[in-house]
């Protein structure tokens, strides 16, 4: 599946990709690989779905959009039904089940900021369940670096 060079490559790229003509050449030089091999490895890692994407991470708020983390306390018997309803919204970027009374956690990203409140109210009305709106107020780190 993944070898040591794949892990080194992922670690290197998590530090940021150069915005320059041949961005993978710098990774190749750092790891002692040919540029073409870096590209081939990235294609394979994308096929294996270890990498979901090589590219930009956006700041939705700077883009003019709305973004929040929402939580719901869903009764066990209704979990699948509510998950299906929530996940059907294209604005729901991801949804995790967590072990807690507040057991459904999803990220909502909308093109217009006011749409966040509208959608959360709609989900609350359709499910009859409370929805916590927990937007980010301050951020203390964002380098999503995981040693591979």
């Amino acid at each position: 599946m993944m070898d040591e060079l794949d892990r080194q490559l992922i670690n290197w790229l998590q530090g940021g990709l150069p915005i320059a003509e041949a961005p993978f050449a710098a990774a190749a030089a750092a790891l002692g690989l040919a540029e073409d091999e870096v590209v081939q490895r990235l294609r394979r890692l994308a096929e294996l779905r270890v990498l979901s994407r090589v590219g930009p991470m956006y700041d939705a708020v700077r883009l003019g959009g709305g973004l929040t983390l929402a939580a719901m306390a869903v009764p066990e018997a209704r979990f699948d039904e509510v998950a299906e309803l929530v996940n059907a919204y294209p604005e729901v970027a991801h949804n995790y089940r967590r072990e807690h009374r507040w057991n459904m956690w999803f990220v909502l990203a909308t093109e217009r900021p006011e749409r966040v409140g509208e959608l959360l109210a709609e989900i609350a009305a359709r499910t009859g369940l409370a929805v916590l709106d927990l937007p980010k107020e301050a951020e203390y780190f964002l380098a999503l670096r995981l040693p591979a």
Binding site: I10, Q14, L17, V50, L51, S52, V54, M57, D59, R62
Partner: peptide, 12 residues
């Protein structure tokens, strides 16, 4: 302009 925060890989 801060629209793109980071340019790199998104890992699963």
């Amino acid at each position: 302009e801060g629209v793109i925060k980071r340019f790199g890989v998104v890992v699963r």
